[in-house]
Design a protein around this nucleic acid. Structure first.
Lengths: 220, 220
DNA sequence: GACCGCCTCCCCCGCGCGGGGGAGGCCCGG
DNA sequence: CCGGGCCTCCCCCGCGCGGGGGAGGCGGTC
């Protein structure tokens, strides 16, 4: 049973982006879109999503009011993931007080977005953005907040996948990685594919970018 | 302040010879030795040489790969003087493409060696006459030293190439870059090829790594 | 015992990528 | 004026990459 997601954002571009990211996952389905908070309640009743990805700033009814209205009027309401552009958006905290389950930065990478939605759907509250540093902290050391750690449980690359990603981030080809790890190239291809899937990357270049951006590997 | 030189050659005899020649000069100091390219990067970080005298043919990691790795991973990298036995070594061309600053024949006289190191340290590209012709031919022009030097000038990306590299570093495919820049994909391929050549990268992934390692783009 | 995650390897297949050429238009400086 | 750098676009071509399957062994847990 897939995670059913409803997208609420006044920017079509953002909705399209979220849809693309989420529907790339086999276990996720976008069941509806709304351009404003005012349209949310009937849509929720109609589509019964597990998670509502809710923008904070919207023209008619903002994400805070929409969250309040939703929780007040709908029985067995969906989880609410607040989506925001700014890290220190005061509205976000207000939304959380209004009953939202977590928040997410728009500039988060696909893998983080996916993880956030998945976490929220499973009832974890996600009060910290699935930010890049926490991903980094996971591999350096386990010291992070619980929500982030839970997210990383799912995001976690296996040991072998981590090795492969590190070598990818050093510019090695599949054949070179195979030689280095003393395995077959087909094996490396399997690991690479797994890494790409888990990171939400289309190709190795994007995976390496994610590795840098997440602090998984560091420049210099 | 003396010119600090790091020697990288798998033959101890050659290292000893270079050391003897260079340390006979009052303004030169050999700050380290390595027997293989694989050992270069940590040694460079540790000793901060001005010039690396790099053999081309070495057991584990050859001079070409070592040069690439060095330029890719070390900030403010040293100048690289490729040392070779053969005048028409195809590897030399590769090494220069990889970003080496010049090359030197092992049978050169002591005075020439000293001269070469000094020139390299001062930022001059150095190509011995016999091979300049060959290189000029390789670059498809009889313009002599000037053309070869210009072609070998590292990381001198044109404005357009810089734009392309930035987009590559954001994970865009050639087609996506073409759409973004409103040009044809063939044009993008031309720029990408130019970027790869100038950075000594084998593929776009290595180019992006270089972009990160050099600070051309920054994480976060 | 059965199950499951991980690692390993295999198949086929399409396509994007990168190398090798070349060429025309533009502007600038000698 | 002509040359050179830059940007643009074109050709052909080989191959690595990534997606789609599947499968066996191995060490865990239930």
């Amino acid at each position: 049973m897939p995670v059913r997601v409803l997208l609420v954002d006044d920017e079509p571009l953002v909705r399209a982006g979220l849809r693309a990211v989420l529907e790339a996952q086999p276990d996720m389905a976008v069941v509806g879109e709304a351009a404003d908070g005012a349209a949310v309640i009937p849509l929720v009743r109609q589509t019964r999503p597990d998670v509502v990805a809710m923008d904070v700033r919207m023209p008619l009814l903002d994400g805070i009011e929409a969250t309040r209205a939703l929780l007040r009027t709908v029985t067995d309401p969906p989880k609410i993931l607040v989506v925001t552009t700014f890290e220190n958006d005061e509205y976000v905290y207000e939304a959380l007080r209004a009953g939202a389950d977590g928040f997410l930065l728009k500039r988060a990478r696909p893998a983080e977005i996916v993880h956030a939605v998945r976490l929220i759907a499973e009832g974890e509250s996600l009060l910290f953005p699935a930010s890049v540093r926490q991903l980094a902290a996971e591999y350096g050391d386990g010291g992070g907040n619980r929500a982030a750690r839970a997210a990383l449980e799912r995001a976690r690359l296996t040991e072998r996948e981590g090795e492969v990603l590190r070598l990818m981030a050093r510019g090695l080809s599949n054949a070179e990685i195979a030689a280095r790890l003393v395995v077959g190239t087909e094996t490396v291809k399997s690991h690479v594919s797994a890494v790409l899937a888990k990171l939400g990357a289309r190709d190795r270049t994007q995976a390496v970018i994610t590795a840098y951006e997440s602090g998984f590997v560091a420049p210099g």
